[in-house]
Design a protein around this nucleic acid. Structure first.
Lengths: 169, 169
DNA sequence: TATGGGACTTCCAGTCACTGGAGGTTCAAG
DNA sequence: CTTGAACCTCCAGTGACTGGAAGTCCCATA
C-alpha cells in the first residue's frame, strides 16, 4: 500500500480515486467531521479542495493519510509523533525506519509503565472496595483510606504516579 | 482521623494547629502552589484567610482536606468524584458509605477496563516493534502496520478503544 | 533600619485532542 | 422549487492543571 504523503494537490484538481465529502471521509475513517476539519486546521491533513459553494472535497490520498493518522492515534501515539511518523513514511531513505522503530519502542515502554502502575492501582482499589463498610462515614473504610495516606491503608505509594501523564491512550 | 469538612472558617480567625503559607501547604501535600490556588478557584478548597498583605494562610483543616483531595486524585478519581466523596465524608449519615462504595467500584471497573485495553495494545505494539525492519520505509513494518488496518497486521481491533477516555489515571 | 531576594499576588494564555453549539449556506433528492 | 440534511465558519468549552509576566510582600541578615 502506498503510504500517503502530505503535500496537497493543487486546489481544484480532481483526485484520482473518486471524490468524497467530509462526511464520507469521516464515515470511512471512523472520525467525526469536526475532527477532520480540526486536523486540517492544525496541519495534520493538507487543505482540501473545495466545491464552488465552499464544501470540502477529498480524494484517495486524504483517505489514506487520515487512515494512517487514526490508526496511529489508536495506538496512542500523540499527534506530534504521528506527524513524525508521517514525515518518515514520506521520506524514501532507510534511516527513517530506525526512527520509526524508536518512536514505537518509546510508546511501548510508556504502555508497559502505565500497565505496571494501573496494576498497583487496581490492587489498592480492589482492597478498598473489598473491605465492606457499614454505618456512619466516620467508620467507612473507603473514606478513611482516602483521608489517611500513612496509616497502613496503602499497599504501595506507587499509585501516586498514575496521574503523571494525564492524556493517555 | 477527622475527615475535613469544606466550610471555610471566618476570614482572619486563627486556625487550630498552626498557620501555613501556600508554599508550606504545597510542600506538605506534594502539590504545587499554583494548583492550590486553582483548587480554591474551582471550589475544591475553601478560600484561605489572608495576611494584611494579602498572602494566603492555611490551617489544619485545609491541610487535611487537601491531603484527601490529592490522595483521591492519585487513585484517579476525577475532581467531580472527589467533590462527591468529600461531601459524603462531611455528612454524618450512614447512606454516604454506600455511595462512596459505588464511586470506588465504578473507578475500579474503569481501571480494569483500561488494563484490558492496554494489554491488547501492548501485545500489538510489541509485535510491531519485534518485527525488525530494514531498508527503505516502503518496507518498514512499523509504518506498514500503521498504514494498513485491514491487512492482517492487527491482532485485534480492540486497541481502537484505548483512547476512549483521554484523561486517565 | 535598610536591603536583598525568595515567596507571594493576580491575570491570562497555553497544554492535548478534540467536541459542541450558534447561525448561516449549499447540495441533492423528490 | 422545496425540503431538509449536510455543510460552512467562528468561538467556547472540556479536565486538570501549568507557566509566564509584572508587580508586591515578608523576613532574615547586615
Amino acid at each position: 500500500m502506498a503510504i500517503p504523503h502530505h503535500l496537497p494537490r493543487p486546489a481544484g484538481a480532481p483526485e484520482p480515486g473518486g471524490s468524497l465529502s467530509i462526511g464520507d471521509l469521516a464515515r470511512r475513517t471512523g472520525t467525526k467531521a469536526t475532527t477532520v476539519r480540526w486536523y486540517e486546521e492544525v496541519g495534520m491533513l493538507p487543505p482540501a479542495a473545495r466545491t464552488a459553494g465552499g464544501h470540502r472535497v477529498y480524494g484517495a490520498a486524504h483517505l489514506a493519510r487520515l487512515d494512517f493518522i487514526r490508526h496511529a492515534r489508536e495506538f496512542g501515539f500523540p499527534l506530534g509523533a504521528v506527524r513524525e511518523l508521517l514525515d518518515l513514511a514520506a521520506r524514501p531513505d532507510g534511516a527513517s525506519c530506525e526512527a520509526a522503530h524508536g518512536i514505537a519502542c518509546a510508546r511501548l515502554a510508556e504502555v508497559e509503565e502505565k500497565l505496571r502502575r494501573l496494576e498497583v492501582l487496581r490492587a489498592e482499589l480492589a482492597r478498598m472496595v473489598g473491605n465492606g463498610c457499614r454505618g456512619a462515614p466516620a467508620d467507612c473504610r473507603i473514606l478513611h483510606a482516602l483521608a489517611d495516606h500513612d496509616h497502613g491503608h496503602c499497599l504501595d505509594a506507587g499509585h501516586a504516579a498514575v496521574l503523571d501523564r494525564p492524556a493517555e491512550g
